[in-house]
Amino acid sequence: MSTDLSGVMRPVAKANGLPNEHYTDERVFMEERDAVLYNNWSGIGTEADVPENGDAKPIEFIGMPLLLIRDTEGQVRVFQNTCRHRGMILVSEPKKIEGAIRCPYHSWCYSTKGKLVAQPHVGGPGMNTHKDMPKSELGLYEVPSYIWLGVIYVNASNTAPPFEDVHAELLERWKEFDVPMYHGGEDSRFELEVDTNWKLAVENYCESYHLPWVHPGLNSYSRLEDHYNIEEYGHYSGQGTLVYRQLKGQMGETFPDFPNLSDKWNEGGEYITVYPNVLLGVQRDHAFAIILEPKTVDTTTEHVHLFYAEPKVDEALRAKNATQWKGVFIEDIFVVEGMQKGRYGRAFDGGRFSPAMDGPTHCFHDWIARQITGHRQKMAAE
């Protein structure tokens, strides 16, 4: 199936949204997996998933088995979770690697850096080498990865330019937050299972237009008119607020601020999508990341993580903050699930965009359309 994306790439005032098939059709979902999620730098987890040397965590990224691991020197790496011998899954549940990563099938072993270190009986009983099976050529496939603001990004296809080049403008915009960030721990992470296509979660997050009706509590102090659009076509989009209110405890305590922030952040916050699938929010005293895991064409898991300026912050205040944000994000669920159901309306043409209010969402649609169009052109030329 090849959908018509020409209307999506028009200027915002004349554009239509992505066609329904991009939310309902399994074949298009697979096309987007390759063109958008595999070909770009997608978020898959956080450093906090493997906090100590030797920690390993298996994940599945839209069907691709991956292994997050912190090697013996403390570097976070991502490998395909597949033995180079017969393709067996190496690690099936989170664990501490003691010594080496051992395949449970024929006991081939790999170091935490991915090097093949043992091949028992590969040359016959008692013969642990074979001239046609060189260890140096049979290490694990390492997937290009990059860590920014605590989130682990991968380029599954190994075809994207370096992360620093792709996101240079965003890294510059938020360079004040390029400081150590500390995950709040188990009470600062939660998951939301949502019956929607992953893109609808991005679209909703990008804009502030819905605040008065969907988030009346938030809108009571950070009003619609206090927000501004962030539209960097071809790069990222989102929204910002001029009125960020610090959370306070019973005795007026607050979280410590990130160091050396400019005055902009005294009462401001920004909420941006790192295309394609990571929703980031930064404020003076904490940050959050929502990593969208597309499960099927119409189901998504939202992995939410909260980060702070210091490794230890007030426990009660931290729990209160997690509860508050969880409440805000839950308020969005009926919206993104409702839009998913609406995409089965056969006469729906992708919808229109308010030039004043929907620019960030159109920015995302335009980027998706151009990723797919470029992928189709490349495939046709091969």
Rank of each mutant, 00 (worst) to 15 (best):
C83S: 05
R84F: 07
M88Q: 14
I89Q: 15
S92M: 14
S92W: 08
P94Y: 08
K95A: 09
I97C: 05
I97N: 06
E98D: 13
G99I: 01
I101D: 07
I101R: 09
R102N: 11
P104M: 06
Y105L: 08
Y105M: 07
H106L: 07
W108S: 07
W108K: 08
C109Y: 00
C109H: 02
C109L: 05
Y110D: 03
S111Y: 07
T112S: 04
K115L: 15
K115W: 09
L116N: 09
L116A: 11
P120G: 02
P120F: 04
V122I: 14
G123H: 09
P125G: 14
G126P: 02
G126S: 02
G126L: 03
N128H: 12
T129L: 06
H130P: 12
K131D: 13
M133G: 01
M133V: 12
P134T: 00
K135D: 10
K135L: 12
S136I: 11
L138Q: 06
L140F: 08
Y141G: 05
Y141T: 15
Y141L: 12
E142S: 07
V143M: 02
V143Y: 00
V143H: 01
P144N: 00
Y146L: 01
I147A: 09
L149S: 13
G150N: 07
G150K: 09
Y153S: 07
N155T: 01
N155D: 04
N155G: 02
N155C: 03
S157D: 02
A160V: 00
P161R: 02
P161F: 00
P161A: 05
F163V: 03
E164I: 14
E164R: 14
E164S: 13
D165G: 01
D165M: 13
V166Y: 07
L170T: 09
L171R: 13
R173K: 15
R173N: 15
F177N: 05
F177P: 13
D178E: 12
V179Y: 01
V179W: 06
P180T: 04
P180M: 01
Y182Q: 00
H183N: 06
H183L: 05
G184W: 07
E186V: 11
R189T: 09
R189A: 10
F190L: 11
F190N: 03
L192C: 05
E193H: 15
D195F: 14
T196H: 08
L200T: 06
